[in-house]
Write a protein that binds this DNA or RNA. Structure first.
Lengths: 396, 396
DNA sequence: GCTCTTTTGTAAATCCAACTACCTAAGTTC
DNA sequence: GAACTTAGGTAGTTGGATTTACAAAAGAGC
């Protein structure tokens, strides 16, 4: 990673990385991989064990001599507080250091009540979810919010549905009660990162995540990092126009935005116009299951229109994978087929040569997992580990 | 940069960075900024002077005591070989370490003759251009090629106009004669990086460069880095379709690709269809100067159509600046106006809040400058400096 | 011209981190 | 169960880089 390529000795953070990735399972492995001497390895491992990040596992199998003590990343060595705020629902959880959920509650909170109400509520839920787990074990907090976020400061810039949240710096509010690093990002960015890290990180460094739900948004992972843009507004594909949209007026004032012709809202509208009795997406699912031709056609057309925009994005970004998520994409195979059809027709040959277009693997857990990984990614990064002293230099 | 934020002492590379950026101009400055002791500073500066990267300048003004010896980045401390290969023309130059051109030749080479012919020719020109300058002073080489490039290996993947160049790993071929680091990238990426580093780097980290010439392409700088995508094909916007293109058949087989309706080729075709006698873009320039209404309309329409694609890209990437380059964009103000008009109408409010849309500042030098900066960026990066020993440990 | 201030250089001392060398632990193999 | 093999720990030594302390250079101010 950030190793000074020459011959600088491996740092504690790099040793943790070897253990986390499974490249090294014993002290001897670490010595072989890094070229570090036994004492140096022992020092770093002891440091990591002091911090609770690494644990000695059962003894491994002998290969003819003393069996090695297996080292493993200690996911239980700390907890991460996460919350994924949505327009309709907020998911709140406590995760371990691997991002696995230890406890979770989904709440119907009216986010419009503003950060002064919602954040304390979330923090109370965190306290509940922590239960007996020591508060000192909390290593960080991560929130995904349906707004544009200036990531470095964790400040919401412009909220799509939460006017009361515009311009709020969230980390200080959380850190006042939980004095740990706090990370905040846009909800779709968080999901994109979650999908990437949890399902694709080993194979892929460039991923486009498209969320199709009530609205349409995207998150871009480029070169392994979330692409945020100048104001944190990257990925706002909802108001890119499509061709042959039929002249639908979008609430943004333009016509034929992909949001207005291919979102869940648009599908419901089109089905009602076709005389179908659909109140919610669940009704659409029923019609699809029943094999209703009109419904299939509407969904597939939405997929094709969305595919146009995805094709443009594929040409521009050249991702290795396009992941379609959000409740609409996750439930409707015809939509995914429609996207595939158009992308392979309209993107350049090179961009689609090895392009995969898939449905979300994480589903509705993506937000929670993404938030947790956003935190652990920073907290366990070699640079962060190396910048943090092993233990307090002076006690006072 | 990659400084282990804690309290690790500043490295030689970081000291060079301070001097290059002008943050520190004397040894005392460096001591103050880094917290390093005088001997430690002296050691690093001596190292940099040994390498020829830093030179003692005139003595600075005294502030009441001994006047400081001013330190300056020594751009003359080495040379960089650069070449920007184009379909119609190849620019070849020798630059100093600041990217300034020391000598340059533009050639009409038929790149189709293949790397076996063209590369030796370029290397001969470099030898000519170097003249009396010592070959040992060559620190690196950089090439921009009109092809998709796998950057890490410097291998061309898919060549747009140069079938004979497909799948060629260029660095070994150059390094055989000039044993220095060799960097190769797509021509538009190189120009985008050049514009960013040379004109915008201090203010902006996200930039979209669009080249409008015979064809249309783009280079993306995201978070200060060139975005390359999974196969190095990012930025291929030429075959994104526009709405209301009129059903023009593009050579890619689809209709209404922006390349087929807004490129230089398309403008010439449309003017001819309108009865204008235009052989080259120079004729179009004449007509624009003469204020020909039809010509203005055609160019402006091309701008508007291009603007649609740029607007989509702006929504997706949220750049701080859009730079329009290539000979068409550089010569035709109406095209730029057309882009501006549509982008501000069709991109989301947040993305355009502080968006600037400008013509290239570097013009036809962009390729050369970009190539030089691509090399110096790597060669002078703190990590590279620190990974390179000061002088040979053993002579043999 | 003398003193003060600021900058830079040099040498001895110190500190920190890693290494070598030696030792113990705990298996397998015969 | 004796010898071999591999893993892991400990202590003194070594090496490199940095710092402190001491000096010297070079101009400003009086």
């Amino acid at each position: 990673m950030s190793r000074r390529s020459g011959s600088a000795p491996a740092t504690t953070g790099e040793v943790l990385h070897l253990i986390r990735t499974g490249e090294a399972a014993t002290r001897a492995d670490i010595g072989r991989l890094t070229g570090l001497s036994r004492p140096a390895v022992a020092l770093r491992v002891a440091d990591l064990m002091d911090r609770g990040l690494v644990a000695e596992d059962t003894a491994g199998p002998s290969t003819g001599g003393r069996p090695p003590v297996r080292l493993a990343f200690n996911a239980a060595g700390g907890t991460v507080l996460v919350a994924s705020l949505g327009a309709s629902r907020t998911q709140i959880a406590v995760c371990d250091l691997s991002g696995a959920q230890l406890a979770r509650t989904d709440l119907e909170i009216d986010v419009e009540r503003g950060p002064g109400v919602v954040l304390p509520l979330i923090m109370d839920v965190w306290a509940d979810l922590l239960g007996d787990r020591p508060a000192a074990g909390v290593r960080g907090a991560g929130l995904g919010v349906p707004a544009t976020v200036e990531f470095a400061a964790g400040r919401t810039e412009s909220a799509r549905v939460m006017a009361s949240w515009t311009g709020v710096a969230i980390p200080p509010l959380v850190a006042a009660r939980y004095p740990v690093p706090v990370f905040v990002d846009n909800d779709v960015n968080v999901i994109a990162m979650g999908e990437h890290r949890a399902a694709y990180a080993r194979e892929v460094r460039d991923l486009l995540f498209v969320k199709v739900s009530t609205r349409i948004g995207a998150g871009v992972v480029a070169g392994g990092e979330v692409l945020r843009g100048a104001l944190g507004a990257a990925g706002e594909i909802g108001h890119i126009p499509v061709r042959d949209g039929g002249g639908v007026l979008c609430r943004c004032g333009n016509v034929d935005c992909v949001d207005s012709v291919a979102s869940g809202t648009a599908i419901l509208r089109d089905l009602r116009a076709a005389g179908r009795q659909v109140a919610t997406l669940a009704d659409v699912v029923t019609l699809v299951r029943a094999g209703d031709a009109e419904t299939m056609a509407v969904v597939r057309r939405a997929g094709r229109l969305l595919g146009e925009v995805v094709a443009s994005a594929v040409n521009l970004l050249n991702p290795a994978v396009v992941v379609l998520g959000g409740d609409v994409a996750e439930r409707f195979q015809p939509l995914v087929s429609g996207v595939r059809e158009v992308v392979h027709r309209r993107s350049t040959a090179l961009s689609t040569r090895s392009l995969r277009i898939e449905r979300s693997r994480l589903g509705e857990d993506a937000g929670i997992i993404g938030c947790a990984l956003m935190v652990t990614d920073h907290i366990l990064a070699p640079d962060t580990i190396d910048a943090t002293p092993a233990r307090e230099p002076a006690h006072h």
